[in-house]
Nucleic acid binder design. Structure first.
Lengths: 292, 292
DNA sequence: ATTTTGTCTTTTATCCACAATAGACAGATT
DNA sequence: AATCTGTCTATTGTGGATAAAAGACAAAAT
């Protein structure tokens, strides 16, 4: 097997949702931009839909013949890209499984475990190494440095520097900058979720990322923005793993966010800094608690 | 061709220098640690030396038979690792060659150009992407973001944050911490080179890296230390490329270093910050000048 | 009792092949 | 005149093969 056709399968599934909504599909280029894939893939999707008798396809005409049913969709497991699969598998190993710091990581073993080729695993490890959790010994193995207390402290130290700097530049954005609108949208979402916290507290993780990324982006600094990837991945897996008191923690964090957002809106640097520090402080504590 | 034997060739050359100095070579493990390679490679080296009649090898006895001559050495081009070759070749393309920002980078073309397989080029690009000069479009090409003014400004912004923080933690190191000794050694080297600046100003580049890395290391933060890789590579190629007024620039920078070192030694935070800022300011200007 | 060597196994680095996907271009259609 | 489709080519993503290098272990030597 060479390349996997996950792009096709995922786009096919998304295209089925379009089929459910209209009587005729638009042109190939239009579908391509809508689904974010090339015309080659679009034509493969259309051909498959024709085979399944979902549409009648003749040049420009793409008439919907019937509504898609569950059996038309590709199973969700088949639409994940290989690198996502490797990432998940790897993170489970090093976070959930008892992975000791200092442990050796074996490309071949990892590849066999996941059921993939070594090349993909190798490329994943290279990409992943910038997160500071593993380190390469050339011509030899990788070393797991581990999700330790030191790691968390180093991570949060830089995060705090970057976020304070970003928050400060947020206050200097022009009044008509789209970030202000997005900030208001995020604020509204906070209030919505808080109003129904018992049912919706799980939505916090995604909202948290969206908010902090917005702040980081206002730095206009690629290094600061890229660094946020590390935060994202750490917190993402951390949330999946440590669910004690999630409701309370999330509610508290959202209150802090609201105070932080309010401070940003005043454009008063001292207030922004105070609110930002307060939130980062409790975020750090949450992270540290989950480690030891 | 699978793996290239550059490790062997490079270690062989270095081992020839040992042969020139002694009558008998030490044990295999000892040689291994001295040259930083495994026993497998050491044994390959010894076998080759035996073939060349450089040594008489019988178990523990490794008697030197003759002095190595120029012809015994492998040519320098053959001892560079493939990733170094790719890096150099790539940097020449994007720095020296007129590479426009926004240009597409083609793995296949790059590989053909360098005369190597695509896998190695691909892995290089993945590793290199953390420097923020290129960006990947999945399933498609890479985009060259270019060594632009924005890049330099974003880089120096983070550098200044990190170095100020590191310099501050330097002042809190225990008096018997080895960093103080290394600092004094670096200081002495500065004075030596300044005393003979006309002949030795080219040594600055290496000294500069050694000094700033020492400062960054005192942060004990892997993200700060890793970031210094970016600075290193940018300045490394930048020095090779822009040589106008090198003597004056380097002399000035060294004077600033001396002031910075003196400030560190007082452990007075205000003085450290002032000296550090002054130096970073002029380093930034030098970099910016070379760009437009 | 340690260290060294001989031998063997395992793993990494690298190239190559091939399917999936992107993308280019000319002719067809509105 | 602009957009769309049919067809073709080029490039990326991934598995597999293989030489180089690392590393394990027992027997041999100090």
């Amino acid at each position: 097997m060479a390349k996997q056709n996950t792009v096709f399968k995922d786009a096919f599934n998304r295209c089925l949702r379009l089929v459910a909504e209209t009587a005729t599909l638009p042109s190939e280029p239009e579908l391509g931009t809508a689904l974010g894939v090339s015309r080659t893939t679009i034509r493969a999707i259309l051909a498959r839909m024709e085979t399944l008798q979902l549409i009648a396809w003749n040049k420009r005409e793409k008439r919907v013949l019937r509504q898609p049913v569950a059996a038309d969709y590709y199973p969700a497991e088949e639409t994940d890209s290989l690198s996502d699969i490797i990432e998940r598998s790897f993170m489970r190993r090093i976070l959930a499984g008892g992975a000791e710091p200092g442990m050796q990581i074996n490309e071949l073993e990892l590849a066999r475990d996941i059921g993939t080729g070594t090349t993909s695993v190798r490329e994943f490890l290279i990409r992943f190494s910038r997160f500071g959790l593993i380190e390469k010994r050339p011509n030899s193995h990788w070393i797991l440095k581990g999700f330790t207390r030191e790691f968390a402290l180093e991570l949060t130290e830089v995060r705090e520097m970057f976020e304070l700097r970003s928050a400060a530049s947020f206050t200097t954005l022009a009044a008509d900058h789209p970030a202000w609108l997005e900030l208001s949208r995020i604020e509204a979402l906070h209030r919505e979720i808080l109003a129904d916290i018992d049912n919706r507290y799980r939505e916090f993780s995604e909202l948290d990322e969206r908010f902090h990324l917005l702040v980081h982006k206002s730095s206009s600094n690629r290094f600061i923005i890229d660094f946020y990837d590390i935060i994202t991945i750490v917190f993402h897996y951390h949330y999946q793993w440590n669910k004690t008191n999630a409701r309370e923690r999330n509610a508290l964090a959202m209150e802090e966010h609201l105070a932080y957002i309010a401070a940003l809106k005043t454009r008063d640097l001292a207030k922004v800094e105070a609110a930002c520090r307060r939130h980062l402080q409790s975020a750090r504590e949450t992270l540290l608690q989950s480690i030891q």
